[in-house]
Amino acid sequence: MVALPFNTTRIEELVLRLNAVMAKEGAVISDLGGNATDDELAVTMQETKGDLIRDEITQEIESMNDEQKDGLVALFWIGRGDVEPAEWEQTKALARQQHKGLVSRYLLGQPEIGEFLTEGLEKMLEFGVD
């Protein structure tokens, strides 16, 4: 049986925050129009430099130990369909070999990160984990 290097609840909470970040748009709307109530929603959905949610996610991922970071990347790859749960240990090792830069930057650069982490976690739970 495979052991995940983190609590599944922690990953589920991370996915919720990742989805919130990914829902934001990078574009700035110069003229929001004339309705102040509607304008507030558009501003809320804009990602700003130094966005605390993105910063918190980056800090959380980068504070993980190497095995947890490798596991997070492996979950992403499994969820994306690149590998199967049975290849868990080899996939973590490959993630370790391919580390170039921040893991958080790699993961936050993936548009469907939340969906793929969720799918990967589901596949791993079906496969059987401790």
Results as ranks from 00 to 15, higher is better:
39 D>I: 05
47 E>F: 05
12 E>V: 12
101 G>V: 01
90 Q>H: 08
23 A>N: 13
42 A>Y: 09
83 V>K: 03
98 Q>M: 11
24 K>V: 07
7 N>G: 06
84 E>N: 04
58 T>V: 15
26 G>S: 10
128 G>M: 12
35 N>Q: 03
25 E>Q: 10
58 T>F: 15
121 L>T: 11
77 W>L: 02
122 E>I: 12
97 Q>S: 11
69 K>H: 05
14 L>E: 01
103 V>E: 04
47 E>W: 08
99 H>F: 12
105 R>P: 02
104 S>F: 09
43 V>M: 09
98 Q>L: 12
23 A>M: 07
121 L>A: 03
108 L>A: 00
1 M>C: 09
87 E>M: 04
98 Q>F: 05
1 M>Y: 08
89 E>K: 08
66 D>R: 06
110 Q>C: 10
86 A>N: 05
60 E>C: 02
7 N>M: 01
32 L>Y: 05
15 V>G: 01
55 D>L: 14
34 G>F: 05
4 L>T: 14
105 R>Q: 07
94 L>Y: 14
41 L>M: 12
19 N>V: 11
107 L>E: 00
75 L>K: 04
64 M>Q: 06
130 D>M: 12
33 G>H: 03
25 E>V: 10
110 Q>H: 00
14 L>H: 01
69 K>D: 01
122 E>R: 13
120 G>E: 00
67 E>G: 04
85 P>Q: 09
11 I>G: 00
91 T>F: 01
119 E>K: 09
97 Q>T: 07
91 T>V: 11
49 K>L: 12
67 E>R: 10
26 G>R: 12
117 L>N: 00
118 T>Q: 08
95 A>I: 11
113 I>A: 07
74 A>D: 02
91 T>C: 06
17 R>H: 02
110 Q>D: 03
130 D>S: 13
2 V>N: 13
27 A>L: 10
122 E>A: 02
49 K>Y: 13
61 I>A: 10
109 G>E: 03
85 P>V: 05
47 E>L: 15
87 E>H: 04
20 A>G: 09
50 G>S: 06
58 T>P: 09
120 G>V: 03
49 K>Q: 11
14 L>K: 04
94 L>N: 13
103 V>Y: 02
36 A>W: 02
38 D>N: 04
129 V>H: 07
62 E>G: 00
57 I>L: 15
23 A>T: 06
15 V>L: 02
21 V>M: 05
111 P>K: 11
1 M>H: 12
100 K>E: 06
98 Q>N: 14
117 L>H: 00
71 G>Y: 07
86 A>W: 06
127 F>W: 15
64 M>A: 03
32 L>G: 06
11 I>F: 02
37 T>N: 08
64 M>G: 01
36 A>C: 00
130 D>V: 12
74 A>T: 07
123 K>E: 04
96 R>C: 00
109 G>M: 07
103 V>L: 01
37 T>F: 10
78 I>Y: 03
3 A>K: 15
91 T>G: 00
61 I>V: 10
89 E>S: 11
29 I>M: 06
100 K>Q: 14
97 Q>V: 08
127 F>Y: 15
55 D>A: 10
